[in-house]
């Protein structure tokens, strides 16, 4: 009896092995290799050989104002984008849960940005926000001035936030719709009997019961937005005047354009630590009080 119990207890671990192996080779090993790479520099006096250099790459980054600009841009971008996307996604999820005729059609329409590849939608937005694009055409026909959008350092980060949210909001709303639909109907019936209506119903039932979905969305959105890269690569290349130079793009530029894998790895590793810290704080704050 005892050995059978023991065997049963092992089953879950055995079943997890394939996933753990994949996780190990495709997540853990690259992370360690990346960290290792960040301690090496290319020595040009040694004919381009890779040599161990301790924290040189980190020191180089800390001394470089461009790195600090990228940190600032990444933080500003995330402080605006994450709350914005989640609040809008929550609103959209609520609307798309309305029991009206043809709601499925609306749901499909709002999911189009999710279904289109991010590269394609970025390019379409690039054309629409062009100097001679659709948006400026509409502005001009309304008598307003044409806007430079991602050609000006004042508007470019806003344009990137707009495009990433155009894709992000319906995507995160997907999870929240599922969460809202998972709330048992009896709770609302009981609330009706107790006389809770409108906002009260929303804040006392919907939001608390959505907590798990929200926690997931918050963490996933934070990670995705800290690592945002494609719109910056396709639209602005970090410009104008570094106004959209997010950390991920700075890492790409150093590693794959300048060929400086060392500082690029150092930067990615620091970004990794930063995201880990932010996500841990978020998870801590989102836990129920008794869980803490």
């Amino acid at each position: 009896m005892a050995t059978r119990m023991k065997g049963e207890r092992l089953v879950p671990y055995v079943l997890m092995i394939p996933a753990l192996i994949i996780l190990f080779f495709f997540r853990i090993v690259p992370t360690i290799l990346g960290l290792g790479e960040s301690f090496y520099i290319t020595s040009f006096l040694a004919g381009g050989e890779k040599v161990f250099a301790g924290f040189t790459n980190f020191a180089r980054l800390f001394a470089d104002p461009v790195f600090w600009t990228s940190v600032r841009v990444t933080l500003i971008f995330n402080l605006i984008t994450n709350p914005l996307q989640i609040i809008l996604a929550l609103g959209l999820a609520q609307l798309l849960n309305a029991k009206v005729k043809g709601i499925n059609l609306f749901r499909s329409l709002y999911m189009i940005p999710v279904a289109i590849s991010i590269n394609v939608s970025t390019i379409i937005w690039k054309l629409m926000l062009d100097q001679n694009g659709l948006v400026n055409g509409i502005l001009k026909s309304l008598g307003a001035n044409a806007q430079p959008f991602f050609l000006s350092s004042a508007q470019s980060l806003g344009s990137v936030i707009w495009i990433s949210s155009w894709i992000g909001v319906p995507f995160w709303a997907l999870f929240l719709i599922a969460g809202i639909q998972g709330i048992p109907g009896q709770l609302y019936e009981a609330a009706d009997i107790d006389g809770a209506v409108g906002f009260k119903r929303y804040f006392l039932i919907t939001l608390p019961l959505l907590k798990n979905s929200l926690a997931f969305v918050l963490v996933a959105a934070t990670v995705a937005n800290f690592l945002l890269f494609i719109p910056v690569l396709l639209l602005t290349k970090g410009g104008p005047e570094l106004s959209t130079n997010v950390a991920m793009f700075e890492a790409y530029r150093r590693g794959l354009i300048y060929g400086d894998i060392g500082t690029s790895s150092a930067l990615v590793f620091m970004l990794f630590i930063l995201i880990l810290a932010v996500v841990m704080i978020q998870s801590y704050l989102l836990k129920d009080k008794w869980e803490r």
Partner: peptide, 19 residues
Amino acid sequence: MRKLFTILMLILVSVSLSA
């Protein structure tokens, strides 16, 4: 995460190839 993964993979590939 996917983009971080891609970058890390590139680094992994370049390291293993150089070895």
